[in-house]
């Protein structure tokens, strides 16, 4: 139990559940399965973007272009669909575009050695600009119904995209925990020089991280387009900061080497759910931002207090243990 609470993601989950219970007690409509499902559904875009961002942060990097990458991929998806491409081909094109956008970041960071924040601030502008140049600045509307269909598929009352994202999350969690290659992300982020001296492919690990961030952003774009049915020019605007914050909230350290996919996903779920909960709580829309900010601050503060209390307890236990048994 204690071990569970000590892990960052478990603690944030606990606080999230607590908030859900409070909201549910206040407005019973919130406890309906459909309400909970919709919150998952709404958070998918951010969850996917945050998962991609996680790889970059694990390597002690940062990518502020993920929102723009998602936007660009959505534009590719929408444009190809309206050109009459079948859904499969259009989705593939979008994923490819996102991956390429990520690879360009990767190239700049690993081979041109441009600091990640500058590289991705630069591509943030480039991708956002390209989006508008490609579309001539107009929204992409009148998308074929076929792209919206997957959003309506479901199993056990849970939409297809939720299942798909959960599966992807499980896969990522498994891979980062068990597969040797994926552990490189942690090694490189924890100690770059050490990883290099151990003979790990440091550059290529970083390259993979930024590329994956692009791929995941493209996944998010597919979900986003399917759920919303049109592509606006400020699609996924500002998601880069939310994705980074989701990671940090879920226990992924900006100084690299620490964090899990589940943590990143929970952080993203939290940041999205807050806005829905406030509506169930009957907080007037005008106070939405203020309350969302306050709740976020309260949660990180409680999280901090609990962690420091546990840490203290652990130290005291160790001191007592040392004094008693000498072990």
């Amino acid at each position: 139990m204690k071990h569970l609470v000590r892990s960052r993601e478990a603690l944030v989950t606990l606080l999230l559940v607590l908030l859900v219970v409070v909201t549910g007690l206040f407005n019973p409509n919130f406890f309906k399965a459909a309400s909970i499902v919709e919150i998952f559904n709404a958070s998918l875009t951010l969850v996917l973007i945050a998962l991609g961002e996680m790889f970059v942060i694990l390597t002690r990097g940062i990518d502020v272009s993920v929102g723009a990458t998602a936007g660009l991929a959505a534009v590719v998806l929408g444009t190809t669909l309206n050109l009459g491409w079948p859904v499969g081909a259009a989705v593939l094109a979008a994923v490819l575009a996102g991956t390429l956008a990520g690879a360009l970041n990767a190239f700049g960071v690993t081979f041109l050695r441009v600091p990640p924040i500058i590289m991705t601030l630069g591509t943030l502008g480039i991708y956002r600009g390209l989006m508008r140049i490609v579309t001539g600045g107009s929204w992409i509307e009148n998308l074929p119904q076929s792209i919206k269909e997957p959003n309506l598929w479901g199993f056990l009352g849970v939409p297809f995209f939720v299942w798909a994202t959960l599966a992807l999350l499980a896969l990522t969690a498994f891979v980062t925990l068990r597969v040797r290659l994926a552990r490189y992300f942690y090694a490189v982020g924890d100690n770059e020089t050490g990883a290099y001296l151990l003979g790990l492919p440091v550059r290529w690990t970083q390259f993979a991280a930024y590329t994956l961030a692009g791929t995941f952003a493209a996944f998010a774009a597919v979900v986003f387009t399917s759920q919303i049915g049109f592509v606006s020019m400020n699609a996924a605007d500002g998601f880069e900061l939310k994705a980074i914050a989701a990671n940090v909230l879920g226990g992924v350290s900006l100084t690299g080497g620490v964090g899990t996919p589940v943590g990143a996903a929970i952080g993203a779920l939290f940041l999205t759910a807050v806005h829905s909960m406030l509506i169930f709580l009957g907080v007037p829309g005008i106070w939405d931002n203020a309350f969302a900010g306050i709740i976020l601050l309260v949660v990180v503060y409680v999280d901090y207090r609990v962690r420091s209390a546990l840490e203290l307890q652990r130290r005291q236990a160790r001191i007592r243990g040392d004094a008693g048994g000498g072990a």
Partner: peptide, 24 residues
């Protein structure tokens, strides 16, 4: 209620979804 989505397409779906569910 009066709710806002701040020109964010994703929020423009999320916010009314919660609204419909909170007020069936």
């Amino acid at each position: 209620d009066t709710v806002f989505s701040h020109e964010d397409a994703q929020k423009a779906v999320q916010v009314p979804t919660a609204l419909f569910q909170a007020h069936p």
